[in-house]
Design a protein around this nucleic acid. Sequence first.
DNA 1: CCTAGACATAGATGAACATCGATATAGACA
DNA 2: TGTCTATATCGATGTTCATCTATGTCTAGG
Lengths: 118, 118
Amino acid sequence: MSKSQLTLTPVQTVACCSPLVSAPLSEETAERIAPLLKAIADPVRLRLLSLVAAHDGGEACVCDLNDAFDLSQPTISHHLKVLHESGLLDRSKRGVWVYYRVRGEALSDLAALIGGGL
Amino acid sequence: MSKSQLTLTPVQTVACCSPLVSAPLSEETAERIAPLLKAIADPVRLRLLSLVAAHDGGEACVCDLNDAFDLSQPTISHHLKVLHESGLLDRSKRGVWVYYRVRGEALSDLAALIGGGL
DNA sequence: CCTAGACATAGATGAACATCGATATAGACA
DNA sequence: TGTCTATATCGATGTTCATCTATGTCTAGG
């Protein structure tokens, strides 16, 4: 069993929380949510998310994504890893290619946390 | 005229954008949105936001907020400044005390950017 | 097998950031 | 005017992070 199945991804901790403005966040909750927000608080990762979401079939190959940036391939790979480990992107390997897909539920939960109760 | 009136706060740049997943974000747009997300991507600032929002009358005095953390007064002041300069908190000084208030519209816009179109 | 291509990992480096103690500012009041 | 209290700013410090080059891994084709 892989280690990632034994630990909660950050995104799994969000669905269970009431909106930010409804009640004071506990220290523990805040510490669990912050990494998820950090994951999208980067211009490159924001563009990666929207590129994947807007791509045909809702998924995109890494090879397509690399071409959209003036950054090295390892750098893009690093950012995709951050998004994947946060639970915001699903990853599937088919042959030599790796495809990423946005987890819409994760983004919805995050939006509800920020904007819910307003 | 103060300098802050001549430059757009990060939050002012969000209301005008279509949701993340609807169309690929331009590099410029992503660069403008990221600082706003960075502002809330910190456990202390998340708790500050929710403490202010959940406080009586929707506003809180800095003196109340300082007590809620095991951090120095300058550190809290720094975090409040980040939230204020992002456009997420309104600031009003009354006598010796400074009160902060959540700008609900800013959070709504941000939530729409993340979760809109899902 | 062996090579080529797609993607990930490792290690290094410079920039950004959270935090602190010390100090400044500004208002209330004796 | 002088002092006390509330908040902000300054300068230093350790940590986190984005990025790079070099290298590893895995798969398909010859």
